[in-house]
Design a protein around this nucleic acid. Structure first.
Lengths: 139, 139
DNA sequence: CTGGATCCCTTTTGATACTG
DNA sequence: CAGTATCAAAAGGGATCCAG
């Protein structure tokens, strides 16, 4: 073995703050939250938690969704490991979407949102009526 | 009093289906869910649940939000009775935003989303890496 | 035919500047 | 400070086209 030398180390990268912070635009948790706090993602997750469904079944069930957004959102959910996609080589081809175990953990967090909307809709509409009445008075 | 007459009643509107259905584009619950399953709304609600804040404080805390979207989302949350706005006539004027009791019930439903993002970020990034690797192989 | 990619146009969002 | 107005950029919707 040669004699020990003093060598110059390359500058060490500053340690990144590993504390998750959903309020920081660059934080990975924030990017995930952005994609998950999305109306189409929420609706898809709720439907798939109920059982495997095909593309066009989802399209029919989710009022107002375009095929573009459905396809796009499903792809994003698949990439994030929340939904799995299975192509069945029939003629014509059928594609089945299912929720993954990870997706189920997210479903547990988003379904309360649906329930909240259903249980508090009256309170929200009352608030809107009040707000609109006041706005009307002012002009 | 005149003698009783047989009068023609105007056609009665068909009774609307009152069952809430977040999947139907026209259902009030769906419209509310759409506005609430929104990244800015979620972040604002979480911050205000922690305490009253002023407009520019929120702007500084929420990375990447534009004043337009902040102002717009706050107005929508106020209309829905989830947030209250208090103008203090100082010079220059200050405006304080607080969460309402109704907003607190929603916060209970959205905060799990933040927690989910923080606790499952590693699993999501692993899934993304797998997905991107496979996509890379294919093409 | 189903799933989905693409083109084109409308709506939403973002950046910046300006006002009470 | 707390917004609105304006204009540019991006996301979204609808129709259409294509592969399996």
């Amino acid at each position: 073995m040669g004699e020990p030398r003093i060598i110059e180390l390359p500058p060490r990268p500053l340690p990144k703050d590993l504390t998750p912070n959903v309020f920081a635009a660059e934080c990975p948790t924030r990017r995930v939250l952005d994609r998950v706090a999305d109306k189409w993602a929420v609706l898809i997750l709720i439907l798939l938690a109920d059982g495997t469904k095909r593309f066009n079944a989802l399209k029919r069930m989710i009022g107002g969704v375009s095929q573009k957004m459905l396809s796009q959102t499903l792809k994003s959910l698949e990439r994030d490991g929340l939904v799995s996609r299975k192509v069945i080589p029939t003629v014509p081809v059928t594609v089945e979407y299912s929720i993954t175990p990870l997706g189920r953990t997210l479903h547990a967090a988003v379904d309360p949102l649906r329930i909240w909307a259903e249980t508090h809709i009256a309170a929200v509409e009352a608030a809107q009526a009040r707000y609109d009445a006041e706005a009307g008075q002012r002009g």
